[in-house]
Design a protein around this nucleic acid. Sequence first.
RNA 1: GCCGAUAUAGUUUAGUGGUAAAACAGAUCCUUGGUAAGGAUCAGCGGUAAGUUCAAUUCUUACUAUCGGCACCA
Length: 581
Amino acid sequence: MINIKEDEKLSVLNHSCAHLLAQAVKHLYPEAKFWVGPVIEEGFYYDIDLGDEVIKEEDLAKIEKEMKKIAKDGKRIIRKEISKKEALETFKDDPYKIDLINRMDENEEVISCYQQGDFTDLCRGPHMETTKDLKYFKLLKVSGAYWKGDAKNKMLQRVYGICFFNENDLQEHLNFLEEAKKRDHRKLGKELGLFMISDYGPGFPFFLPKGMILRNILENFWYEEHTKEGYEFIKTPIMLSKELWEVSGHWENYRENMYTSVIDDKEFAIKPMNCPGGMLVYKNTLHSYKDLPIRCGELGQVHRHEASGALNGLFRVRTFTQDDAHIFMREDQIEEEIIRLIAFIDRIYKIFGLTYEIELSTRPEDKFIGTIESWNRSEAILQEACKKAGHECKINPGDGAFYGPKLDFHIKDSLGRVWQCGTIQLDANLPERFDLTYINQDGTKSRPVMLHRVIFGSIERFIGILIEHFAGAFPTWLSPVQVKVIPVNPEFQGDYAKEVVSFLKEKNIRVELDDRNEKLGYRLREAQTSKVPYTLILGDKEKEEKIVSYRLYGQKETTSVTMSQFVELILTEIKEKSLRK
RNA sequence: GCCGAUAUAGUUUAGUGGUAAAACAGAUCCUUGGUAAGGAUCAGCGGUAAGUUCAAUUCUUACUAUCGGCACCA
């Protein structure tokens, strides 16, 4: 996927296109007031206040037409430098621009503007020389957007677009958007029978039999890998009393997202996170310094009341299963444990063919518990460990959890889109709140520190990402159906087909027989559209010679091998968790 | 939650102020086929609730859900 922001020339082009958009909007809606029009990874947008008027999807064509007209006229884009006073005068009719000017640095005495024909905009630049260069653009969508990104503010209208230097690049980008649409996990999830969401439970997904196979494989894989890494496992209750959430700080900091209920006059909350339960498990027994680190994993189902507008297939749901674990350590073990964890996460992502970047999210401005000193210390430790693990680490200020800073893993899928999945959160606060201790060599008590961490993030979201990443054509080890067996004529080779099916089933291969009275071509086609990795075609030749002819997903030709050769081939592929070519 | 759009069969869509259509999928049958799309027959539909109207799937309103964003976030 193209990142406009990272390409200097494309950035300038798109920035100029944003001005062109504003100019066209001004022509069509003279009352329009303008906030800002920055370049983003996928093009540009402009935030506009139209008073009572509304730009709708169908108006975009009209605006585009006006933009083309202005561009064709090809006015020069002229930079002007004026004083703050002059600027306040020039933009006196636009309160948004006045706000921008007043927010500027005291010592920034000279303010730059860019003029093209009848339109002048406040702007640092740089810009293209003339509007003539703006030929290959497309307006993509309109929506509301809060002024200054703050939900307390008024909503402006945001128009998104993208601009390229030639028709080909533009077309390529539009094709990419089409491709992404085809891979939409909501669409594929429906087509492949993986999951559903009912109107009776918005944000509460149902897993269907095929999706359940995928999910069970992922969970078993998770248990296996964590066992190798020295984890032990627990399951904690979904619902716990209000007092617990008061101790953990969730009642104070997270309540608006929690489902609560009164039982026998006592208030309870459904867990939005697994940590407090994990704390209680730790406290259940005494711990020696020799036992640390304790790595305690839980595939824990949490419920969070997410805003209705945030829901999106499996990506944003109201109940999901975190592949959670809490690691309790001595202070001197933190760094080593984090480095080890980063390597673990790296190994897991590689198996799926996913690349990633790490970001450090620091202390939120208002909602946090603990002291600023302890936050600073934790942030420094995370950053240092990340560096020592050989990874660069961008800073994402103010995005930490309320109990601690975190390293976030941003996964890049096969289309180059980015998703946040894994996170490692360093927490010195909850051990304090829950008064966790361990016994030292000299018999005194010390406070452990803990890590919260997930690798998939949520099983649901991760499955959504995998669906889109693989476009529904999962590697064989993950495929709900691994082999489809099709007798050319069920009447003549049906028995042989059944024999083959039961043989494969014995080897724990997930196999389906298609001996419907449908044309061969039709059944083959269906095997392809259901994205099954292997289709076995069994005719008289195969039956007589006791062989099978297999066709790989996405390929036309077939290969004939003996049964045992085929089993060996597929079992090796499953064992090695090979990615499909 | 906010801005905007959408809601018709299992799915994808068409169409209409006079009582709903197609394709695919499904069922039964004919066709017994080496890389989908021959035939016959059948079954199935207007998110919910109000309002306007002689008459509403069609117009209006509210609600609900979904989609594109914003805000929030695993």
